[in-house]
Simulated scan of single mutants.
Amino acid sequence: MSLQFSVLASGSTGNAVFVETEDHSFLVDAGLSGKQMEALFQKIDRDMGKLSGLLVTHEHSDHIKGVGVLARKYKLPVYANEKTWKAMDNLIGQVPVEQKFTFEMETVKAFGSLEIESFGVSHDAADPMFYVFHHQGKKLVLITDTGYVSDRMKGLISNADAYVFESNHDVQMLRMGRYPWSIKRRILSDVGHVSNEDAAIAMGEVAGDRTKRIYLAHLSQDNNMKDLARMSVSQTLESKGIIVGEQFELYDTDPKIPTALTAV
Rank of each mutant, 00 (worst) to 15 (best):
V95C: 06
Y79D: 02
T107G: 14
F111D: 15
V191S: 08
I187H: 03
W85K: 06
H169R: 03
Q172K: 11
E104S: 13
H193M: 12
K184W: 08
F119M: 13
F119D: 12
R186H: 03
A87F: 08
F119H: 08
E82V: 04
I116L: 10
F133T: 00
R185P: 00
D89R: 01
T146I: 09
V78T: 01
H123I: 06
P180R: 01
L156G: 06
K100F: 04
Y74M: 00
S182T: 09
F119V: 07
K86W: 12
R186V: 02
Y148K: 15
S113R: 15
Y74F: 06
Q136P: 03
T84Y: 04
V194W: 00
N159W: 09
L140M: 04
V171G: 13
R185H: 13
S113N: 15
Q94S: 14
V132M: 04
Y74D: 00
E104P: 06
T84G: 06
M129W: 07
H169S: 01
H134W: 05
T84R: 03
I157S: 00
I143D: 01
W85T: 02
K139Q: 13
Q172A: 10
H123A: 15
T144P: 02
W85R: 06
M88L: 03
F133V: 02
V164N: 06
M129K: 10
R185A: 13
L76G: 05
P77E: 02
Q99A: 10
P180H: 04
L174A: 11
T146D: 00
S122Y: 13
E166A: 09
G192R: 00
T102L: 10
W181G: 10
M173C: 03
F103K: 02
K83E: 15
D151F: 07
Y148L: 15
K86S: 15
F103T: 05
S182K: 06
A125V: 05
V95N: 02
Q136S: 13
A162Q: 07
I187K: 08
R185N: 12
F111T: 13
V121K: 04
T144D: 04
A80D: 00
G177T: 09
G192N: 05
E117L: 07
N196D: 13
V95K: 05
S150I: 07
T102W: 02
E104V: 13
E82P: 02
M173E: 09
D190V: 11
K86L: 14
E104A: 14
M88I: 06
V191R: 08
Y148G: 15
V121T: 11
P96F: 11
Y79H: 01
T102Q: 11
T146E: 03
H135N: 12
R152A: 12
Q172T: 10
Q136K: 12
S189W: 05
E106G: 06
G147A: 11
R175G: 12
F133Y: 05
D151M: 13
N159F: 07
I183S: 06
L174M: 05
G192V: 07
I183W: 08
Q172H: 11
K138E: 15
N196P: 12
E117P: 06
D145K: 05
G177E: 10
G192L: 04
S189T: 00
S118F: 01
W181F: 14
S182L: 09
S118V: 07
A110L: 11
D124P: 00
L142D: 00
K86T: 12
N81I: 01
S113H: 14
I92F: 04
S113F: 12
N81R: 05
A162K: 05
T107P: 07
